[in-house]
């Protein structure tokens, strides 16, 4: 009898914690939506900030975030995909080289995002950027050796590479070896097999990984804090050496450092809501793609 009670209470407790987590999620969503609802409008999305950031929209922040994510994707998706191909198709699973790469990938996914920011500052700006300046502009002009959108995107790319790798590898692993064997038996070389047989079957994994990486890149703020983001710039970034505005950073500075925090509360909520909608729709798409892919595999 006592035992039965114990069992029931375990199930009840675990059920309650699920409900708690889900309700926390729903509550956060509702709170942010309700807070920003009255500010959301087409103008809010397409206008730059006005009146010392107390009015107007968040258009430059949206553009900055999109550009950041695009440049980041150009770097992290190919590198991540190719690394995953190496790990799953070429690598000798027991060689030290493979183990090293695997360990590096695992470690990379655990490095705090702020450390990536420091790394971006120390490596991209102080080392690569300053080095490029020394070569191209000997007059000592600062061109690349300062925070800009390129270095911010590269820093973010390093952060998101493991996400792509994990997702692509998962889909590569799911491809039956029969397919590869059949292709090789027909006389295709290894690379032909990968390019024509393996990769087309891994598209969903690459897609999922890319979407997850983009979602992460859009939401992270810490890595770009000192590698290129700006509080406010009147013009949109037009070249790689420009600084940029960013949705997440916009929320951060508006809530903690703007002159009148209370007056811009609505803008803050609305910005947070826009950012949430972006990352949520991205991860939702990723979930759906993955779910469909798994279903296809089972059938």
């Amino acid at each position: 009898m006592n035992n039965k009670l114990l069992g029931k209470s375990i199930i009840a407790f675990s059920f309650v914690s699920v409900v708690l987590i889900i309700s926390a999620l729903v509550f956060m969503l509702l709170e942010i939506y309700l807070g920003g609802r009255s500010y959301l409008s087409w103008e809010f999305l397409t206008q730059p900030p006005k009146e010392g950031m107390t009015e107007g929209g968040i258009f430059p922040a949206i553009v900055g975030t999109v550009l950041l994510v695009i440049i980041m994707s150009l770097a992290c998706i190919p590198i991540g995909t190719i690394t995953a191909i190496y790990l799953n198709e070429y690598a000798n699973k027991k060689s030290i080289f493979t183990k090293m790469i695997r360990f590096a990938v695992n470690t990379l996914s655990g490095v705090p995002s702020i450390v990536f920011g420091l790394f971006g500052l120390g490596f991209f700006i102080q080392f690569v950027g300053a080095g490029m300046d020394k070569i191209f502009t000997p007059e000592g002009e600062l061109n690349w050796g300062q925070p800009n959108i390129l270095w911010a995107s590269m820093t973010m790319a390093f952060l998101t590479i493991p996400i792509v790798i994990v997702s692509v590898e998962e889909s590569l692993k799911a491809i039956p070896d029969d397919l590869r064997a059949a292709s090789l038996a027909l006389g295709a070389t290894k690379w032909q097999t990968i390019w024509k047989v393996v990769l087309p079957n891994a598209v969903s994994g690459i897609l999922t990984g890319s979407i997850l990486a983009i979602g992460r890149g859009a939401g992270e703020v810490a890595p770009i804090l000192f590698t290129g983001v700006a509080y406010f710039i009147p013009h949109l970034p037009s070249k790689l050496t420009d600084q940029f505005m960013n949705l997440g950073y916009h929320i951060y500075v508006m809530t903690t450092q703007s002159t009148d925090v209370e007056a811009t509360r609505g803008i803050q909520y609305a910005t947070a809501f826009v950012l949430l909608v972006c990352t949520f729709s991205l991860s939702f798409i990723a979930i759906v793609v993955r779910y469909r892919f798994r279903k296809k595999l089972i059938s």
């Binding site: 987590i21 926390a24 999620l25 956060m28 709170e31 942010i32 997850l212 979602g215 992460r216 859009a218 939401g219 992270e220 703020v221 810490a222 997440g248 950073y249 929320i251 951060y252 809530t255 803050q268 947070a272 950012l275 949430l276 990352t279 949520f280 991205l282 991860s283 939702f284 979930i287």
Partner: peptide
């Protein structure tokens, strides 16, 4: 839970 994981930390901080 996956949606919760995709919550940007700056939004959690804001909340």
């Amino acid at each position: 839970i996956e949606l919760l994981a995709s919550f940007p930390s700056v939004v959690v901080g804001f909340f």
